[in-house]
Simulated assay, not measured.
Amino acid sequence: MSRSRVRQYIELGDSISRLLLQHLARQERFDELARQSQPRGLAPMCDEMIEEITAEVDAVVADDRMARIRRDTAKVTELADHDFKGAVYKDFEAQLCLETWPVLRGMLRSRKLIHLAMADSARLGRSFFVLSEDAEALHNYALARDEILVDVVVSALKSFRKNALVGGGWNPNFKGKRGPCCLATWFIRLCILELPQHYTTWAKKQRKIAKHEAMTDGVNLSSIIGQTGWDVSEGEATRLSDEFESILGEQSVGTQAVVRWWCMGYQQNEIAEQLHINTATVRQRMARFKRVLYDAARERRIWIPEQLHTASPVGTKTQRGAV
């Protein structure tokens, strides 16, 4: 064999050795990440919760669980090659969001995400609850769900990289009772942890919006009365508006917002859409205010013209205190 041929074999052997060493180093690094325990500060996975999340993922994602875990294992090995950074990792984040977004939206609409977050908070000794009217809004309005989920997902992505990948929290070789879970399930688990904080922020924002609506310019019933053609003097209309405004100001922020939108000419379904509540809640608040209004009329705190009794949505029965 010629010397040049021997030299070629030696160089080829050296190249193969380098590639094998690089592969072994990557595999050793990945195995080390897999062996690490879940990082501090991150709540342990609850088997029952993981089972529920997995069922939701199974209903949306085509591959079976073991196929997803094999695919995810290969993906994490590739991402580790790039130190979980750069364009490759950004592309992975985008794909993860695309895969989990419909699952998260469905779970929030069905209130399962809320129930899991409440159960998880109770298990961790934390206080978390969702107001029924907020739960209804999240069930009925996609925009409300998206407002919360965008913030939840952004926060969860940061935590996911740190805890699941770099920190080794996700373990494809997990030997627990129910075995390992896929990355999508792990990510949704993080979203459940993030939900209480971002729901609270969203709910406070909704209260501020309702309060702002309730603090707009005083109700002016003169234009409403004028459009109907009812024979009410300007002085009577002003008196009615002032008394109406005084009684409305005593009501809850939510009721004030509903009534003020009605006074601006909006229908019940339009009011519900504006305030991110359902139509039944609008009707309940209107009916509650109607009762308050008639109680005030019996106490002679407000004068309502007789012709308003049957035409106005605030009431249809005869008012004892009417003049």
Rank of each mutant, 00 (worst) to 15 (best):
residue 3 R to Q: 09
residue 4 S to N: 11
residue 4 S to D: 15
residue 5 R to L: 11
residue 7 R to W: 09
residue 7 R to E: 12
residue 7 R to N: 11
residue 8 Q to N: 09
residue 12 L to D: 02
residue 14 D to C: 07
residue 19 L to T: 13
residue 21 L to G: 02
residue 27 Q to R: 12
residue 28 E to R: 09
residue 38 Q to A: 05
residue 38 Q to H: 08
residue 40 R to D: 14
residue 43 A to R: 13
residue 50 I to V: 13
residue 51 E to Y: 04
residue 53 I to G: 12
residue 58 D to F: 03
residue 58 D to Q: 10
residue 58 D to K: 15
residue 59 A to D: 11
residue 62 A to V: 14
residue 64 D to K: 01
residue 65 R to C: 05
residue 67 A to K: 11
residue 71 R to V: 03
residue 72 D to R: 00
residue 73 T to N: 04
residue 76 V to W: 00
residue 79 L to K: 02
residue 81 D to R: 14
residue 88 V to H: 07
residue 93 E to N: 10
residue 95 Q to W: 06
residue 95 Q to I: 04
residue 96 L to F: 13
residue 100 T to V: 12
residue 102 P to C: 02
residue 103 V to W: 04
residue 105 R to A: 04
residue 115 H to C: 08
residue 115 H to G: 06
residue 116 L to D: 01
residue 116 L to I: 03
residue 116 L to A: 01
residue 116 L to W: 00
residue 117 A to Y: 00
residue 118 M to K: 09
residue 118 M to P: 00
residue 123 R to T: 09
residue 124 L to A: 14
residue 126 R to I: 06
residue 131 L to T: 04
residue 131 L to K: 06
residue 132 S to G: 08
residue 132 S to V: 06
residue 135 A to P: 01
residue 140 N to R: 09
residue 140 N to M: 13
residue 142 A to K: 05
residue 144 A to N: 01
residue 147 E to L: 07
residue 149 L to T: 08
residue 149 L to E: 02
residue 150 V to P: 01
residue 151 D to T: 12
residue 152 V to Y: 04
residue 153 V to H: 03
residue 155 S to H: 14
residue 155 S to K: 13
residue 156 A to C: 09
residue 156 A to W: 07
residue 158 K to V: 11
residue 163 N to L: 08
residue 164 A to S: 11
residue 164 A to R: 07
residue 172 P to T: 05
residue 174 F to K: 15
residue 174 F to Q: 08
residue 175 K to Y: 01
residue 176 G to E: 09
residue 178 R to I: 12
residue 179 G to A: 08
residue 179 G to T: 08
residue 182 C to D: 15
residue 184 A to Y: 00
residue 186 W to R: 11
residue 190 L to V: 06
residue 193 L to W: 15
residue 194 E to N: 08
residue 198 H to S: 04
residue 198 H to L: 10
residue 199 Y to D: 02
residue 203 A to M: 10
residue 204 K to R: 15
residue 210 A to Y: 11
residue 211 K to V: 02
residue 217 D to Y: 12
residue 222 S to I: 05
residue 223 S to K: 15
residue 224 I to P: 01
residue 232 V to N: 07
residue 234 E to N: 08
residue 234 E to R: 09
residue 236 E to S: 15
residue 239 R to W: 01
residue 239 R to I: 03
residue 242 D to Q: 11
residue 242 D to G: 06
residue 242 D to N: 14
residue 247 I to E: 02
residue 248 L to A: 01
residue 248 L to C: 05
residue 251 Q to K: 05
residue 252 S to C: 01
residue 254 G to K: 09
residue 255 T to R: 14
residue 261 W to C: 10
residue 261 W to V: 04
residue 261 W to I: 07
residue 264 M to C: 14
residue 265 G to M: 08
residue 266 Y to W: 07
residue 268 Q to R: 09
residue 269 N to A: 09
residue 269 N to H: 12
residue 271 I to M: 13
residue 271 I to C: 10
residue 272 A to S: 07
residue 272 A to C: 03
residue 277 I to T: 10
residue 279 T to G: 07
residue 279 T to A: 14
residue 280 A to R: 15
residue 282 V to M: 10
residue 290 K to H: 13
residue 293 L to D: 01
residue 294 Y to V: 05
residue 296 A to E: 03
residue 296 A to N: 02
residue 299 E to S: 03
residue 302 I to Y: 00
residue 304 I to M: 10
residue 313 P to W: 07
residue 314 V to G: 02
residue 314 V to M: 14
residue 315 G to S: 10
residue 317 K to C: 05
residue 317 K to W: 07
residue 318 T to K: 14
residue 319 Q to G: 15
